[in-house]
Write a protein that binds this DNA or RNA. Structure first.
Lengths: 233, 233
DNA sequence: TAGTGGTCTAGACCACGGT
DNA sequence: CCGTGGTCTAGACCACTAG
């Protein structure tokens, strides 16, 4: 392994495992130089990777600060899920994680490596205050992830669980977005009439674990809580 | 100006103005060192900026290759606009660029600097083959952009025109996405019934020109051509 | 004032691509 | 084989932040 990758990995794991928390300062570039017997070019390269992936911010005169929210991942968020914060948001399991068949609801191509593996599936209804706003179906290959089935999610967050317990990060995504009529099941769950327009988002999340993707089909009502997205180079 | 910024700027302008075209090789890192009397650290830094912003790909053993398609900007695209390519896509002006009032259709906050300036507005109907798929309303402040009103767009592309004629790049975006019923005008333009679900996307494009944003309201039918998005770190 | 990150120099060796 | 980008060393000076 390259030197800068070693430093990068060590620091990333310490961030993911909570040794460095949001707001903490990482060791300075010179401290890393001493600790690993490298030059500043190399310690900077390691930190620049963390910067690029949105784990830290660098502040001249201060240091490298760990940040809470990963840099915009091009993910689509329901406006309100982040603003409303934890207290006002409820995630209700319609189906707790189980081993199941791969569904033909998934519109993206699932690789053979994945389909030859068990599928973990779960469904959630996500609410802001008293309002149900999104139905979420998820599928992923069971690449040594069986404990997802037994344990609770960290902070009710699937991505946080993957990051902290399996060191798997989301590094990309594909979306397809449609406006559709709610079908019977979705209409019932979201407490709207059939023939209400709903947003149907098909997502494939690409992860840092090669060949491992997460597939989701989302249905949202957007009248009160539109889906939003922010991206900056 | 810093040395690496000077090299970066020089190269970027040459790419934008077409001196280096898609597929071309930029001068090698060592050539830049000689030309500008700098070290490789500095020439690499300049090229890394171009890499980060999606102008080039670096290929070990070959060089820095100019690429056509800017790295995924987190932009939402109608699936089909890119695949179908130029020949099958039609852009019909419903309103050619004109000076107008700022509209209250814009849902994002428009800065005072912008509202104190004239607004340039245009509307397009975008079609794939015989199918109208999107109605597009656009607004932007007339920061010395009057010639947009007289001239044709480069390859019918507004962003290409901004890049090549004004050296303005899109560096970020905010979206809000809703599923709605088509109103009368949209239904007529998209040749669907009223009460058909349409995708309504509100966009604010952030540009490389400080304080200059582009605002758009888009209405899409997504049955045949869903809106898609790809993002990778 | 001491320590931080930002820029830059002047070298070196390596892996990879095309000829 | 030569030239390319990728990694790395060992320094230097600067601008900025905090105590």
């Amino acid at each position: 392994m390259l030197k800068y990758q070693k430093i990068y990995n060590d620091l990333k794991i310490q961030i993911q495992q909570g040794f460095y928390k949001s707001g903490d300062l990482l060791p300075s570039e010179n401290e890393l130089c001493n600790k690993y017997s490298i030059t500043r070019t190399t310690s900077r390269k390691a930190l620049d990777e963390l910067l690029k992936e949105g784990f830290i911010e660098k502040k001249q005169g201060l240091g490298s600060v760990v940040i809470e929210r990963r840099k915009s991942l091009g993910l689509l968020n329901v406006k309100g899920f982040s603003e409303a914060g934890g207290s006002n948001v409820k995630n209700i399991f319609l189906q707790k994680p189980v081993i199941s068949e791969w569904s033909d609801q998934i519109i993206f191509h699932v690789s053979e490596e994945e389909t030859h593996t068990d599928c973990i599936h779960f469904e959630r209804l996500r609410c802001i205050g008293p309002d149900p706003v999104m139905v979420e179906y998820n599928w992923l290959a069971n690449f040594e992830l069986s404990s997802l089935i037994e344990k609770e999610f960290v902070d009710q967050s699937f991505f946080k669980t993957l990051s902290q317990q399996y060191l798997i990060e989301i590094i990309g995504s594909k979306h397809e977005i449609r406006a559709e009529f709610a079908n019977k099941k979705i209409a019932r769950l979201l407490k709207v009439d059939e023939k209400t327009p709903v947003l149907h988002i098909s997502v494939m999340f690409i992860t840092s674990k090669p060949g491992f993707n997460i597939y989701a089909e989302l249905y949202c009502i957007t009248e009160k809580y539109p889906v939003s997205n922010f991206y900056k180079i």
